[in-house]
């Protein structure tokens, strides 16, 4: 493991902590897309099927359990917590997230390394993660007021993807020289989806203004 990978994982973890902090401390999930959060539950469940069949490291095992657990906790808060669920912008969270599942699954059936349940579902989780942020970005675009914690959550999530790209570059040139096309391509697509958000996030930060995305 290199420093970029570790920094990427920590940024990912930090983004989740920021989101849970927002929900728990302010008892509000306004500006957060439940659809994106539900997609992340599916992403983690399908990717970490090997949790009990293959041991990589204690670090990997703990992180996998944390990602699965926190994603369930967030969805639980948004759906069932009696105060939090009332702050959910249901009418603005309009992205048809189910339409992302089938194309990602078909693509995973067509493009994978090995035709096994584990590998196809692992590939599916990579394709799905690449596009899972879309409902969240659409919701942000429709929100007049994006609060700081929501903006920071998406910023750290994007930073995590950027650091993973650096990790792959480092790994390829300085560690194992192995091409991993499926994670690379889906990771690059995912990172590119954040470009627009990053542009406006940095702009608002420079101008000391509240973040607002153009419609």
């Amino acid at each position: 493991m290199n420093l970029f990978r570790l920094a990427g994982d920590m940024t990912h973890l930090f983004s989740i902590i920021v989101l849970l902090l927002k929900i728990h401390a302010t008892k509000s999930c306004s500006g957060i897309s439940l659809k994106t959060q539900e997609l992340y539950v599916i992403v983690f469940l399908t990717r970490y099927l090997d949790l009990f069949t293959r041991f990589v490291s204690l670090y990997n095992t703990v992180m996998k359990i944390v990602f699965i657990g926190t994603s369930f906790a967030i969805v639980w808060y948004m759906r069932y917590h009696k105060v939090v669920k009332q702050t959910y912008n249901k009418d603005e969270d309009t992205f048809k997230h189910y339409f992302l599942l089938l194309p990602c699954f078909v693509l995973a059936l067509l493009l994978h390394n090995e035709f096994t349940t584990m590998d196809v579902l692992w590939t599916f989780s990579l394709y799905l993660e690449a596009v899972a942020i879309l409902p969240q970005l659409v919701l942000l675009q429709q929100s007049r007021n994006i609060d700081n914690l929501t903006g920071n959550y998406v910023f750290f999530l994007g930073a995590y993807r950027g650091l993973y790209v650096l990790n792959w570059i480092y790994r390829y040139f300085l560690q194992d020289h192995r091409a991993r096309w499926i994670p690379w391509i889906s990771g690059l697509v995912q990172t590119a989806l954040y470009a627009d958000f990053f542009y406006y996030y940095i702009l608002s930060w420079k101008k000391h203004e509240k973040l607002k995305l153009p419609a």
Binding site: R5, D9, D50, R54, V56, K64, N113, D119, W122, Y164
Partner: peptide
């Protein structure tokens, strides 16, 4: 054939 470290990232 999948090497073990093909799936080692999170």
């Amino acid at each position: 054939y999948l090497d073990d470290d093909d799936h080692d990232e999170l």
